[in-house]
Structures are given as structure tokens and as C-alpha cells.
Design a protein around this nucleic acid. Structure first.
Lengths: 337, 337
DNA sequence: GTGAAAGCGCTAACAT
DNA sequence: ATGTTAGCGCTTTCAC
């Protein structure tokens, strides 16, 4: 019989197939060499007839783990994070896992609340898109639930599972690009340095500039106290505009920061300097043809995350994916000249 | 005792508090008048000491429903959908519910797969951000699981739960705005008319123009066969540019379509016509100062959705939220003049 | 190759 | 006010 609106139970399938529920379970879960071909066929057709799917609650209760994988993102409004989430969801689904997506707003307390909730859900794994350090994270680190750190490494510096790009190399490439394009005075606008991605990028840019003979002192480094990258970019650009000497290029540690800076420059009415960002969501081609950006293949992150989870390797591992500098010099910049 | 990494069980709490598990359950679930103040306190402190959270699997098994609410979005790369998801997640969390977010890519087959999965998860409710018609949806309609249709109404036309704006009124306002701004030749670019939101907007624009004396025949209506709104906008704008007479204003049924059209116009090098869209994600202020758009308060959608779910009213209901036309005439347009 | 049965953690009906 | 107990749907020994 069919339960009200909730599919059929294993009992119904067993009854229809004329076998025990244990056999149904084995067939459904593909336990090898445990059922005759004939029985298997009968069970399968009963499953199809009743459109049976094992209730996840029963399964989770018994197995002490669910098919849920938590993805905790620092900011869903960031198209880059949304892209990672979308990619993760596809990859997880391919393995029969279900993504639970939460927005931590980059706040430790909220991250902790979600971590607790996911523990109650017996989540199979936790994926942190830009983690912050928090008590619960500390408690779960080293526990049985795998934790994958995406973009930002483990803030506590553990050599845990990680998916990201080589930020140092990317930072160097961006710096060299600006110099090669003729920029003499270069500014950096960055978000919180608590993020490993940010600090690695800033350090690499500065070192590369120094190596090319640009004195450290001539590089303007700006930031602003704000969780919102758009606001950081806007306010930092404002301060750059207040300086006596203008800058030729502004390197931003994220595209959102670059968006914020760009807005300020456009409001100013003058020609915006060369702007470079990191992330490069597909939307950039459409709405930000003026933004050169380090394209990070977020559409592949899902597979990278899942492969890290699948590796039963107890050894800590990382997936460093290739990036590519997308040079854009579209209308908005040209027109200003 | 603490289970490996998965929090503590109700048994552990009962043992520590020196009561039965039933009492713990009652206290945790706040069953009124069922425990003395002293017992309640003892249980609470045991809960705190062990950091206990009821395992959702046990609860779901017993109650035949989980605390999961599925949100099936047609396209997570659309900032508007991401905004709704973020808002829904906050509102659900406030009621102790957990959001499961999936990207259906606007494909019936994928939507069905998720619907089945969510049935297996015994989801408390289903929220469809831009639903398409599909067999499983038809099967679940009228079932015990509440389904909320966001933006697009139920494609089968049922008067089910719905959250959205008054698309007809918004369409009229947009049309009048264009005329008042001096536009004489107006084009409409729209996505699939299977979406109630789209068809209502297009119809209202045309009717409003007709009412103001603009002959139906002079309104250029464009679309393109594509799931991707950006591509629809781009390709439709291309065709508009191929016409002998240019248009003064282009009304797009979504911001993404407007982004696509804008790109094409910018590539063309000429002055883009007045562009109007729908959605107006917060990002627009930063990256699309040229886009006038119907601002839909997606940040409030979460509460609207949850309130619809809470209303045990068996009568079908809808939450029509207020919109606001955001008139923008930023740099990109001015500069082109 | 198959079935019987235990038990995962929890809630709710029923006893006391 | 509190405890006892049945049982939700499933997987997994253990018999046969």
C-alpha cells in the first residue's frame, strides 16, 4: 500500500514481490551475489511499479549517517559562491548525495549554529566556502565528519582537505600583467586578511612588484572595515581618489571589491584606472567587460570537492585547480579615454 | 556517553539528568505542563552539558516528516534566485527548518528527480522558484506536502500557494514609464511565455501601450529559443539592431535579458536605447547603473513563503508583495549620448 | 539465496 | 508529573 503522500515503504515492495524486506533491501542497495537473477528482477519490477525510494530517515537511523552534505557559504549573494554551490550540487547528486546550502554571512556564530544543525542531521560531510574560525569548527576538526575547505584554507592552519587555486602564482601573474600593461603606480584593495586566499594574493602581488623593482612604499594598499566586499571596494576607491597622485592600476582581491571600486570611479566621472579582480564569474563577460580578472573554474569545484571526499586516503589532501587571467579591456574603459 | 562525532543521544541526557528519555523528549520539545520546574531545569542543564541536539533521523522516522524544506530553483546563477534562496533560508531557519537547495536548470526531468528525492527525504514542504510542469509535480499536487510557487504561478494553473508581485500592474507601469520618458518606438524582449510572470508582463505592457495609443503593430516583440536569459537578450538585441529603424526603449522581462541586450548594444558601439528590466538584484546598483528595473523585494520573499506555509488555512492563498520601479540613468547611457 | 529479527533515536500513547 | 513501551523504515547480522 502507498503511504499517504510519501511514496511506498519497503514492506509494500516486499509484499508485491513476494519476498522478505531483507531481500528488497539487498537488491535495492546492490549487495553483490545475494539474490538470484529471478528474484532481483521481481524486486526491481515491484520497485518500479510502486515507484519506491528508500526513506532516508530509516536509512540514516540505521546507518548513523545521512546522505546530506552541508555546504556552508559565507555569502550567497556573491555570484562566485553561488557558482560553487551550483557545481557542488551537481557533483554530489551524481553520487546520490543531497546538498544542504546555508549562508553563514561570514559570521562565526552562525557558522557554528549550522555546524550543530548538520551534526544533528548526521551530515555525511561539511563543505565550507570561505570558513571562519569558530568553536564548533574547532570541535569538529579531526572528528569523523570530513570537512572540506574551499577557497580559504582552514583558518586554524591545519593541512586539511582543501580546494582552491595557487593564489601566490595568480597574485604574481596579476602584478606582472599590470606592469607589462604600463602601470607605474599600483594600488591593492583587499578584504579581510584572515582569509588565506586574500593574504596569499596580497603578499604575492607585493613581492612580485618588489622583485620587478617597484619599491614597497610606492604600492598603495587599501582596505575598509566591512563584511561587504562591494562596500570595501567603494570606500577604498574613494580614498584612492582623495590622494594627490592617481594610480594607474587597482588590483582587487575579489571581483565584488572591483565592482565597488568601479562604481566609485564611474561616479567620479573620470577615466577609471585599470581594474583587476579575482573570481571572474561568467556574468563578468556580460556586465563587466572592463574587468580583467583571474578566472577560477568554479564550475569544476564540485567534482574536485567530491573527489576529495571519495579519496578514503586518511592523508590530508588538496586539489589545486588551474586558473587563467582573463584580460578584458571593454567599452567602459575605452570610452573613458 | 558521547557517540563518536555525532553529538549525544537522548539516552545520555536522560542518564545524566536522572530521568527517563520520555521526560527529556518532552522538555526538549517544550510540551507544556508536563514536567516540574525542577526536572525541567535538570534536563536543560544536562542538555547543555552534553550539547545535545535531537538526531533528526529518529525524529523524522517517528513523525513521518523531516525538518527539511526543499527549494528547487530554476537557475542558481541568476542573482535574483540566489537572493530568494538566501532569504528563504533565513526565514526557514528561524522556524527551525532546514533548507535544501537544488538547481533544476528549468528542466522538467531534473525537477522531477529532485521532487522524488525530497519525497524520500520526507520534506516538510516544497518551494519552487520558477516551476515547470512535470509528471511528478502533477502527482504531488493536491498531496499532503505543501508546494509554494514563487514568481511563476503553478504552470498547471491551480490556485495554489504563490508568492510574487502584481506582474500586470508592473508591466503597465513600465510601459507608461517608457512613454513618459519620451520613447516612441518600443521593443519587448521576453523569455519563455510558459512562465506566468513573463506572459503577464508582456501582455500588460502591450495592453498599456495600446491604451496609450501605441498601435500593437508598432511594438516589436522579440525572443529567442534558449534557456539562458543572457543569450536571449543578446540575440534579440542583435535582431533589433538589424532592423532599419532603431527603437527608443527596450523592455526586458528579466534583468538577465537586459544584461544580454546591453552587451550587444555596447559591442555595437552606438548609444544603447533605454533599457528596462525586472528583478533588480542589489548588484544592479553596482554594476548596472544604466538599467531601470522593477525592484522586487526578494529579501522579503523568505518570510512570505514561510508565512504561507504556516497558515494552516486549507484555502489556497497568495502573497502579492509590493514592487517598485527603480529608475536609473547612469553613466553608461549618459556617456553614449 | 533468503528470511527472521534486532535495533538505530526518537515521540506519543498509555500507564502509573 | 513521570516512566514504560511500541514502533516509525531501514540495514545488517545470523540462521537456515
Amino acid at each position: 500500500m502507498t503511504r499517504s503522500g510519501a511514496g511506498s515503504s519497503i514492506k509494500a515492495v516486499a509484499a508485491l514481490a513476494g519476498v522478505s524486506i531483507a531481500t528488497v533491501s539487498r537488491v535495492v542497495n546492490g549487495v553483490a551475489n545475494k539474490a538470484s537473477a529471478e528474484t532481483t528482477a521481481r524486486v526491481r519490477s515491484a520497485v518500479a511499479a510502486l515507484d519506491y525510494r528508500p526513506a532516508s530517515a530509516g536509512r540514516a537511523l540505521r546507518q548513523r549517517t545521512s546522505r546530506l552534505v552541508a555546504v556552508l557559504a559565507a555569502n550567497l549573494a556573491n555570484p562566485a559562491m553561488a557558482a560553487i554551490a551550483a557545481s557542488a550540487e551537481i557533483a554530489l547528486r551524481k553520487r546520490g548525495l543531497v546538498m544542504v546550502l546555508c549562508d553563514t554571512h561570514d559570521r562565526p556564530a552562525l557558522q557554528d549554529e549550522y555546524l550543530k544543525e548538520m551534526q544533528a542531521q548526521q551530515a555525511r560531510a561539511i563543505v565550507l566556502l570561505a570558513a571562519v574560525e569558530s568553536p564548533m569548527l574547532a570541535a569538529m576538526r579531526g572528528g569523523p565528519t570530513p570537512i572540506v575547505f574551499v577557497n580559504r584554507r582552514d583558518p586554524a592552519g591545519s593541512a586539511g582537505l582543501h580546494v582552491g587555486i595557487d593564489n601566490a602564482a595568480a597574485g604574481r601573474e596579476v602584478a606582472v600583467h599590470c606592469l607589462d600593461a604600463g602601470a607605474r603606480t599600483i594600488a591593492i584593495i583587499h578584504g579581510s586578511l584572515a582569509s588565506s586566499a586574500t593574504s596569499e594574493r596580497v603578499r604575492a602581488v607585493r613581492e612580485a612588484l618588489a622583485a620587478r623593482g617597484v619599491p614597497h612604499a610606492s604600492v598603495v594598499v587599501e582596505t575598509a572595515e566591512d563584511d561587504d566586499h562591494l562596500a570595501i571596494g567603494y570606500r577604498s576607491a574613494k580614498r584612492l581618489l582623495e590622494r594627490s597622485s592617481p594610480v594607474d592600476a587597482v588590483i582587487c582581491t575579489s571581483d565584488l571589491i572591483a565592482f565597488g571600486a568601479h562604481r566609485r570611479y564611474v561616479e567620479d566621472g573620470g577615466a577609471p584606472p585599470r581594474l583587476v579582480g579575482f573570481d571572474d564569474s561568467p556574468l563578468n563577460d556580460w556586465i563587466a567587460p572592463w574587468l580583467t580578472s583571474v578566472r577560477i573554474p568554479y564550475e569544476n569545484y564540485g567534482e574536485a570537492i567530491v573527489s576529495l571526499l571519495a579519496a578514503d586516503d586518511r592523508a590530508p589532501a588538496a586539489r589545486i585547480v588551474p586558473y587563467r587571467l582573463m584580460v578584458r579591456d571593454g567599452p567602459s574603459r575605452n570610452r573613458g579615454r
